[in-house]
């Protein structure tokens, strides 16, 4: 396996591209092959991921054109039985209002990637937040999420800079929502965070259409 740090540090995009290519070839004959196929539909998956103390809270929600299918969302806390504690699980439940807790193993990760499929994923600060999840995926399944990605943070910053070149860049989702006047309640929670980033994406994409 190619070392993560060796390629990521200087040329992140080239590294991940090469790695994705190699993983696609490696899993070409496995049941996961379809995840590496290019996606041709019009859906996206908004993803948010919080990890502390061996517990990862994940919320994934489908975005179909202008609809956010919150009723069919995939929300769970993945708890690593080795290092995670009951206190950490509880903290996640309270903090991110995640009701279901699953053990962090192949089955639960598989159900997550089955949910995501080969659809593109989007999220706020996607790379940073996904890092712990990716790490676990690699450990248990041997590959990271191969999907195309949209980092809403970058979109936001690009549009903000275009409008106000002097504006200070903020890394808070709540600030971004306020900035574009997107209504959302409590982006602190896992599902709301994913929903809010999806709404922000819809809003920004609309702006993009208008600019073009």
């Amino acid at each position: 396996m190619i070392s993560r740090h060796a390629l990521d540090a200087p040329l992140g995009w080239l590294g991940s591209m090469l790695r994705r290519g190699s993983e696609r070839r490696r899993y070409a004959a496995s049941p996961y092959a379809w995840l590496f196929q290019p996606y041709l539909g019009n859906e996206l998956v908004a993803l948010s991921c919080f990890a502390h103390h061996g517990v990862i809270s994940v919320a994934a929600v489908t975005l179909r054109q202008h609809q956010i299918l919150t009723s069919g969302a995939w929300v769970a806390a993945l708890s690593n039985t080795a290092s995670g504690s009951a206190a950490a699980e509880r903290r996640h439940q309270l903090l991110y209002s995640v009701d279901t807790t699953l053990p962090l193993n192949i089955e639960s990760l598989r159900s997550l990637i089955e949910f995501i499929g080969n659809r593109p994923i989007l999220g706020w600060q996607l790379e940073q937040r996904l890092a712990p999840l990716e790490q676990q995926l690699r450990r248990h399944l041997g590959f990271g999420l191969p999907n195309a990605r949209v980092d809403v943070t970058k979109l936001h910053q690009r549009y903000l800079r275009r409008l106000h070149p002097q504006a200070e860049q903020q890394a808070e989702l709540a600030c971004a929502l306020r900035c574009w006047q997107v209504p959302s309640a409590a982006p602190q929670r896992a599902l709301e965070d994913a929903t809010a980033s999806a709404l922000l994406y819809l809003h920004l994409r609309r702006d993009a259409d208008q600019v073009v």
């Binding site: 202008h66 609809q67 069919g72 809003h203």
Partner: peptide, 12 residues
Amino acid sequence: HGMDLAYFDRHD
């Protein structure tokens, strides 16, 4: 649990 969200642009 059953509600979805939808976003509509002006004049949609």
